[in-house]
């Protein structure tokens, strides 16, 4: 997720208070809305992104990067990618996952400058990681309310 949980909750609270509350007219509904805001404000500093999700992503990305380095053999760019992999912090998990995502971008840019025949194994490693990561991300998604959001 690109929005930190705190920013997301702050944004929801802001919208509830500034955009929704003025249109809520019954006393009971207003009371419930204030209660929701109170819950969210107090939740804000007690939660963080699930560690297991970040750990799974980081483990998969690190494996892919190791395969990229191995696949490139003695190519000079292998050193650059290995350095990016080594520079990723050991934790917290969210920071490690973010650093490894950046290392994957570095790897892709390095591969882009090399002949396709020499990068096949490395590209396969990254592709397999990307596919697995998309599936992990999709598995935690709930059915979309886009129609209701659009129609109001």
């Amino acid at each position: 997720m690109l929005l930190p949980v705190e920013a997301l909750i702050d944004g929801v609270v802001r919208t509830l208070v500034e955009s929704i509350l003025p249109d809520v007219t019954t006393r009971f509904a207003r009371g419930q809305l204030y209660a929701a805001v109170d819950v969210l404000r107090n939740l804000r500093d007690r939660i963080e992104v699930k560690v297991t999700l970040c750990e799974a992503e980081a483990a998969s990305a690190a494996t892919a990067l190791e395969r990229v380095v191995a696949g490139l053999g003695t190519e000079r760019s292998a050193v650059r990618i290995a350095e990016a992999l080594a520079a990723a912090p050991g934790g917290p998990p969210a920071e490690r996952a973010a650093a490894l995502r950046a290392a994957l971008v570095t790897a892709l840019e390095a591969l882009d400058g090399l002949p396709a025949a020499r990068t096949e194994a490395a590209r396969t490693a990254i592709a397999e990681h990307l596919a697995a990561q998309v599936m992990r991300d999709l598995m935690v998604l709930k059915p979309s309310l886009l129609t209701e959001i659009s129609k109001g």
């Binding site: 702050d10 802001r14 991300d137 979309s144 886009l146 959001i149």
Partner: peptide, 26 residues
């Protein structure tokens, strides 16, 4: 949304919709 330049929550839902785009890119 992150910069608080809009309070429109429809901008925030994109954060969890990005994996769909990842799948389509794939």
């Amino acid at each position: 949304f992150r910069d608080q330049r809009t309070a429109d929550l429809r901008m925030a839902i994109f954060d969890h919709q990005l994996p769909f785009l990842g799948a389509l890119l794939g």
